[in-house]
Design a protein around this nucleic acid. Structure first.
Lengths: 204, 204
DNA sequence: AGTTAGATTGATCAAGTGATCAATAACCTG
DNA sequence: CAGGTTATTGATCACTTGATCAATCTAACT
């Protein structure tokens, strides 16, 4: 029965949510026009009416995903309460690492997009920008840390430290996707703490 | 013209090489029975004659890839010449990191398989095993390093150190695939050296 | 009520996929 | 050179995909 109108822009949103539902359970490969339409309870043609092509739907889904994924937004206050720059940095990292297993579906999807990005310039640009933005989020913490003890962090820029912090979390994300059952937040954090704490002038 | 026989087992190998050629230029998604057959100069049916299904061809290609990919096997001697455990570890890491951009195609393929593994148990097992094997390759170096200065590495197990080393290289691999032009071996190594060298008792 | 504009459907097309299989040609044995 | 074995082909089937489009229905506005 054609004609049953929906509240305009909500259709787009509904389709995107359906696309996410499909992708969350069957990954990006399962996101077909028919699958999304079935999930949304509409006809396949309507998907193309709102999103010209499946490709553009995927790009829109990535935007939706990035907009609806704020890492660890639930504890913005606890971080400010910690005065020590080092402890603040560690808490920030821990917060994100703890978030990873809880949102495994999103992390997996992100990696799907990341792989897709290798062949898709527009997606690659979006992913890269998101990663840079994530790295930059560590910048103020890194700056404070370096400033708090310039001698100890001699030779390390705040940029470098922020990169390493982001890289560590990304490495954990890799492990989470690879083997969720075997990933242990505490072990990862302990290893990081030990590594960073250990002076190793022998390494060159 | 049917009947033109090939030297037995060489056919399998030839098909696998063709599959690799296809995958190297068009990624895993391009590996179809027809594409591989065309690349190998045979008919599509023959692919199914030697590899029951495309799925099994992909698994066989992964095995082939793992067997034909020995990271940095060209400099096995230089490592032994370095007596200092710290420098040895750093050289080992550098060796692998330098290898990444040169073999980008293989690294990309590896990530394709890694993503595929999330849905394919057999592939996931193979990938996981390969990653563990890679991590274990750092174990002797890590043990020597920890033993060389127990006080400095207090709280760090050799396993943890090996994990971090492997994780660092994997992180670099991620960057290489994402943006080959922007990846800089020297910068990565410098950052690592600075991080490891910097004592940071403030971090907890 | 009549009209118009826009949303919605479902059938449909073309392209590409994995897989099967009868027919056939080369090889080996005798 | 006959005969059996085996690799090889190419046509073919069933299926899925992205995409298009005429027909249709609903809502809003006269």
């Amino acid at each position: 029965m054609p004609g049953r109108r929906a509240p305009e822009e909500e259709r787009r949103e509904a389709i995107l949510q359906a696309a996410f539902a499909v992708a969350a359970s069957g990954r990006l490969g399962a996101v077909t026009a028919r699958a999304v339409a079935a999930e949304a309870g509409i006809s396949a043609g309507l998907v193309f009416f709102y999103f010209e092509s499946v490709d553009k739907l995927l790009v829109a889904l990535l935007d939706w995903l990035l907009a609806h994924t704020i890492v660890a937004a639930d504890t913005p206050d606890r971080l400010a309460q910690v005065s020590d720059p080092g402890a603040r940095m560690m808490l920030a990292i821990r917060r994100d690492v703890e978030w990873l297993p809880k949102q495994r579906e999103r992390v997996e999807l992100f990696f799907d997009y990341w792989v897709l990005g290798t062949r898709h310039p527009a997606i690659r640009r979006k992913i890269r920008r998101a990663l840079l933005r994530y790295r930059d989020a560590f910048q103020p913490l890194a700056s404070a840390l370096v400033a708090s003890d310039p001698e100890r962090f001699a030779g390390m820029s705040a940029e470098g430290l922020a990169s390493v912090a982001a890289g560590f979390v990304e490495g954990c994300a890799l492990q989470v996707v690879m083997d969720p059952t075997q990933f242990d937040v505490e072990r990862s954090m302990t290893t990081l703490a030990a590594l960073v704490r250990a002076p190793a002038p022998a390494l060159a």
